[in-house]
Amino acid sequence: MRGLPGQIGTWLAMPVVAALVALCLAPLLILLAYSFFQVDFVAISRDPTFANYVKIAGSETYRGLIARAFGSALLVVAITAVIGYPVAWFIAKRVTGAKSTLLTLLLVPLYSGDLVRIFAWRVLLGAEGAINRTLMWLGLTTEPLAGLLFSPLATHIALTYNYLPFMVIGLWLAFESLDDAWLEAAADLGAPAADRFRRVTLPLTSPGLIAGGLMVFVMVAGDYLTPQLLGGASGITIISAVNDLFGTAFDWPLGSAIAWTMLAILMLCFGAGALAIRRTALVSEGV
C-alpha cells in the first residue's frame, strides 16, 4: 500500500516528468516523423517513406561517417579506460584527505567550455605550438611536426582529454564500492597482481567501466566541434553532415533519418550496457 507521502511525491514529480517528456521526447518524435518525409526544394512531402533510410544504407559516405563516429567513440572509450583505471584507483584508494579537491580539479577542464579547451590544444599542438617549439629546441626535429595538429591524432588527443573525467568518475564510483578485502582475498588465495586485476578488479568495477564508457561513447559520437576544429581536412563528422543537411541543404528529412539512425544505434548500445551492468554481481538481486 502506498501512503499519502508517496502520493504527494508522485504529484510533485508529475510536472517535472511532463516537462521532460515535452522537452526531450516530443522533439525527438517530431524528428522521427520527419525522417519518413521527403523534401523537394523547400516543400516537405508528408507521404511516409523509407527512402531516407534507404539512402543512408546505400551511401558509402553516410555509412562511413556513422562507422567512423562509433569507431572513434570506441577508441576514445578504450583510451580513457586505460588512463582512467589507475587514476580512479588512485583517487578512490590512495587519496584520503584531498579526495574532493582532486575530483574537483579533475572536473575543472569541463568548466572551461569546449572552445577554450580546443584552442588550448591548438596552442599546444600547432606548428608554432609549445610541443613543436620544445622538440625543435631540443634538436629532436628541424621542421615542426605538422601532423600534430589538424589530424585525427589531434582530434583523439583532445577527445580523450575532454571526456576522460566522465570515465574517471564512473570508475571512481566503482572503485569506491570495491572492498579491498576482495583483493586481499584474491592475493590470499594465491592470485598474482595481474590475475587480481583480471579476475576481481575488472569484473567488480565493470559497472563503472560500462557506465563511464557509455557516457564517453555517447559524447564522442556526438562531438563535432573537436574534429572540426582540430581534425583538419578530414575533420568531418556525421554530426556536421547532419548539421549541413538541416542548414544549407534544407533536407530535414534526411538529416532526421541520420539523427535517428545514430540515436537507434546509441540506444542499442545503452540497452546492451544496461543489460551488462545488470548481469554483473554488484547489482544482481537474490532469487
Binding site: A127, E128, F150, G232, S234, G235
Partner: peptide, 23 residues
C-alpha cells in the same frame, strides 16, 4: 584540393587565428 588543405574553416575568427599563427 583536400589533400593540400590544412583544414576547412568554419568561422572567420578561427581562420584569422590560423593566418596569424602561420598554420
Amino acid at each position: 584540393q583536400k589533400s593540400k588543405l590544412r583544414t576547412y574553416w568554419n568561422s572567420i575568427g578561427d581562420l584569422t587565428n590560423l593566418f596569424a599563427t602561420g598554420e
